[in-house]
C-alpha cells in the first residue's frame, strides 16, 4: 500500500470528530453527515494520489465540503448550467433528451441567461477583477498589487459580483411567487 494514501487514512481516523462536526454543522442532518463522512472515507481508502497531499487534514475538510455540495446540488440547475454552456457547439454527437423535465431546465437556463445580462451591467473594473480572480485564478493579493488598491477593495469588488446574482435570484423568486398565484 502506498504510504501517501495510508497517511491520509490515518489522518482521517485521528480527525473523525472535527470532520463529522463540520459535516453536521454544514448539513444539520446527523444521518446525512454520517453517510457523507463514510463516502469520503471510502474514497480515500480506494484511491491513491497523483501527487502528495500537502496538508492532509485541510484536504479532508475540502473533500467533505465537496461531498456536501454534491449532495445538495440541484439536478435541474446543474443541467441548465451544462446545457447553457453547451449551446455554443458546432457539432453534436449522439445523446437523446435528458430525463429531467424540459420546462424546469428551460426555466433555469432562462434564469442563467438573465443573470448574465445583469452581470453585463456591472462596473467595468468589478468585472475585470472578478474575471482575474475567478477565471485566471489570480490571488486577491496579486490583483490588489496589479490595480494598486487594497485587498479589502478587491474583496468589495468580488462581493459585488456575488451580490448581483443574489439580487437577481431574489427578484426572480418574488416574481414567480407573484405570477404563479391562483
Amino acid at each position: 500500500m502506498d504510504q501517501r494514501h495510508s497517511g491520509l487514512l490515518s489522518v482521517f481516523e485521528e480527525n473523525r470528530q472535527p470532520l463529522l462536526r463540520f459535516l453536521m454543522a454544514r448539513t444539520r442532518d446527523a444521518a446525512l453527515a454520517e453517510d457523507l463522512l463514510q463516502n469520503v472515507w471510502i474514497k480515500i481508502r480506494d484511491l491513491e494520489h497523483a501527487q502528495p497531499v500537502e496538508n492532509p487534514l485541510a484536504y479532508l475538510f475540502k473533500s467533505c465540503e465537496n461531498a456536501v455540495r454534491d449532495a445538495k446540488r440541484s439536478a435541474a440547475r446543474k443541467l441548465a448550467r451544462e446545457t447553457l454552456w453547451a449551446e455554443q457547439v458546432d457539432v453534436h454527437v449522439g445523446g437523446g433528451q435528458n430525463n429531467l423535465t424540459p420546462e424546469k431546465i428551460a426555466m433555469e437556463r432562462d434564469n442563467l441567461r438573465a443573470v448574465l445580462a445583469e452581470l453585463e451591467k456591472m462596473p467595468e473594473r468589478t468585472r475585470a477583477i472578478f474575471l482575474d480572480f475567478r477565471l485566471q485564478e489570480i490571488p486577491q493579493k496579486e490583483i490588489a498589487d496589479q490595480y494598486a488598491i487594497s485587498i479589502s477593495a478587491v474583496e468589495k469588488h468580488l462581493q459585488r459580483a456575488y451580490r448581483v446574482i443574489r439580487e437577481y435570484r431574489e427578484k426572480m423568486e418574488k416574481d414567480d411567487a407573484g405570477g404563479a398565484g391562483p
Binding site: 440547475r77 448550467r81 454552456w85 449551446e87 442563467l112 443573470v115 448574465l116 452581470l119 446574482i165 443574489r166
Partner: peptide, 17 residues
C-alpha cells in the same frame, strides 16, 4: 448554500462565454 450556487452560476457564465 446560496453563495455556493451563485458561485457556480458565475463560473458557468464565464465558461459559456
Amino acid at each position: 448554500d446560496q453563495v455556493v450556487e451563485a458561485d457556480a452560476d458565475l463560473e458557468t457564465m464565464a465558461a459559456k462565454n
